[in-house]
Amino acid sequence: MARRVLDALRGAGHTTVTAAHLEHAATLPPEDQVAALGAVRLLGADVLAPYVLTGSAPPAEETVAVAAALDALPPAQPPPAAPPGGPEPAWVRAWIDWSLVTVLARIDPAVTAPTAPEPPPPPRCAAPTAPRHAPATAEGGVTHEGWVPWSVLMGQLSPLALPGLDGPVHQAARSGATGLARGATRAVLRRDFPTAARITRWLAWLHAEGVRLPLDPAPLTEHITLLGGGGRVALDTAIAGRLLGLESV
């Protein structure tokens, strides 16, 4: 599914993404048809990224197909509590569902889609904690209760890093640019390119918003593009490249 979106973003393959995906799935066994619907939900607003990023209007059958996937697997209501009060995977899913329903309603208001789920609270980046016995004038170190898990969690919410989407998670990204930069750098050094690509998407989104960043996300995106692998990583870096104006990515 990610490869279909990537091909559409690059102007290759079908003129539709979800409609072509579900049309192919209709020829498969029932359990595979359900999996195909799940793939649409899993990518969230990214299934509509080719239209969001290029400004082109999707064919009518495309938005109808996305709405059909949402009807078949509707978002949970009410949304789960934010972790640690609620399960993290369900909380992330609620935000990604919100992104898909919100973008769909904006692109084609004529399509009847499920009501956007009430978004749960955004992730909060814990304040840097000074190491024990450090001089008062030294810069505070950061514990694993701070930016490390927060940046990874924000990476899981990368389908929200698209133009036109804005909300509490986006505000958290604006206030946590340093944590995101650290998280992306850490993931690259660990050769965890899927996580690096997801977090770098937020840095690219912040750059497009005019937010001052502690690093240049363009060479970071190009580096991940060269060394990362898989359709999901390729899609994340392609979207980041579009946000940064790197048409070659």
Rank of each mutant, 00 (worst) to 15 (best):
A82H: 13
P78D: 02
P163Q: 04
L104Q: 07
P114D: 03
G230I: 11
G176S: 15
L157A: 04
A113E: 01
S56K: 13
A19Q: 09
D236C: 00
P117V: 01
A67C: 06
I224D: 07
D32W: 14
A113L: 04
M154V: 14
L9N: 12
T27R: 15
E62N: 08
R174Y: 11
D108E: 11
P149D: 01
L100G: 05
L53T: 07
L157D: 01
A67F: 11
V148C: 01
P149N: 01
L153T: 15
L160P: 00
A172Y: 04
A60K: 12
E62P: 14
P29N: 05
L203F: 09
A69N: 09
G141S: 12
R10W: 06
A127V: 10
L243Y: 08
P29C: 05
L227W: 14
R232A: 10
P117M: 02
P74L: 02
T237I: 03
P214K: 01
G183A: 05
H21W: 15
A19K: 10
D192P: 14
V52K: 00
T195P: 06
P75Q: 05
E145N: 09
T129V: 13
P128R: 06
V249C: 13
T16A: 08
R186P: 04
P168D: 15
R182C: 09
S56L: 11
D46N: 06
A127N: 04
H144R: 06
P128C: 07
W91P: 13
P117D: 03
A204D: 06
L246H: 12
A240E: 01
P123D: 07
D192E: 10
E62K: 09
G85I: 00
V148L: 10
P87K: 10
P219N: 04
R242Y: 04
A72Q: 08
Q33R: 15
H170M: 04
A65E: 09
D71W: 12
A20F: 09
A105E: 08
D97I: 08
A238W: 08
D32I: 01
V152F: 14
R201N: 02
L226T: 14
T143R: 10
P219L: 00
I96M: 01
E222P: 00
L162N: 03
T112E: 14
L6D: 08
P214L: 00
W147K: 03
H207V: 01
V188I: 15
H133G: 02
L22K: 09
V66Y: 12
G11E: 02
R232Y: 13
V64Q: 11
D97R: 11
D46R: 00
T200N: 12
L203N: 07
P79A: 15
H133Y: 14
E61I: 02
L42K: 12
D108Y: 08
G167S: 09
A105S: 14
I199C: 06
E88P: 03
V64Y: 03
E209R: 15
S56R: 15
L180R: 00
E139I: 05
L160N: 01
A204L: 07
A81Y: 05
R93Y: 03
R3A: 09
A49R: 12
G164K: 05
A197T: 06
V52S: 03
